[in-house]
Amino acid sequence: MISLHNVAYLIGAKALVSDVSFEVMPGAVTALVGANGAGKSTSLKLMSGQWTPSKGDVRIDGQPVGEIPVDELALRRSVLSQQSALTFGFKVDEVVQLGRTPHGSSAAFDAEIASRAMEIAGVSHLKDRFYPTLSGGEQQRVHLARALAQIWEQPSKGERYLLLDEPTASLDLAHQHAVLETARDCADAGVGVFTILHDLNLAAQYADRIIVLHQGHMIADGSPADVLTPEIILKAYDMPVMVTPHPCASCPMVVPIPGRNRSGEEVAVSAAASVRGDGAGQARGLAPSEPEYPLPVI
């Protein structure tokens, strides 16, 4: 279990996150959602041990993350970052094998694991391509394979964790789902999966638990059905939505209300009127006819 207890991270006097407490359980997918700048990536950097919290503590299997040597930590958790600065002409196969860096295993063994990881991430057909020639989405999936190869074996101590920072950011629709299905499979194999997501419907469909950050504070933590309510989403994103049951999965589905801008003001006369039944606009006391700032020209 990765646990954050009353964690705060300050830069000068500005708190990027404060009073954040949650757990990432092995065998489950935990999703972190929130608006840009809400503190999602900061939380992930604190969990991965890249940054040290200013207050509170982050523990992995009960041990403060700062006290675990980096090479031991690398056997227990892998991190999929948003972008990689890799510009050197490695082949895809070699990039995935970089995931084996912390292990002292044989080259043949590493190659076999890399090829299995590439299969799972759906990049086997790219294995002899030069990494810099791939598209952004393909590169992202190569790094997923690398992250899988890194935590392939059960470590001698503790559990395994996979930390994903917006893994679906540059992917097409099919691959967004494929990547999260892989994350799901990892959780089913006992890995604690933590993922930052922007798409609430992906979070609803694949996460066991969703945590919502708003301006550095947690405003919700629970199952998708508990967390994905119009009120919480309005608070987190300043955006009115409707929540309906998913037509073919047992999870909620979030639908933005058309014809509204970010503050819930009506920007055009549209069908939106017919679905404005959730009281979102009224909840913030906004009068649709009196915008606070000039409306965008559509």
């Binding site: 980096v70 090479d71 056997l75 892998s78 600065a85 970089l98």
Partner: peptide
């Protein structure tokens, strides 16, 4: 890969 990724790799 980058310095932070290298740290993640131990």
């Amino acid at each position: 890969l980058s310095e932070s990724e290298a740290r993640h790799l131990g």
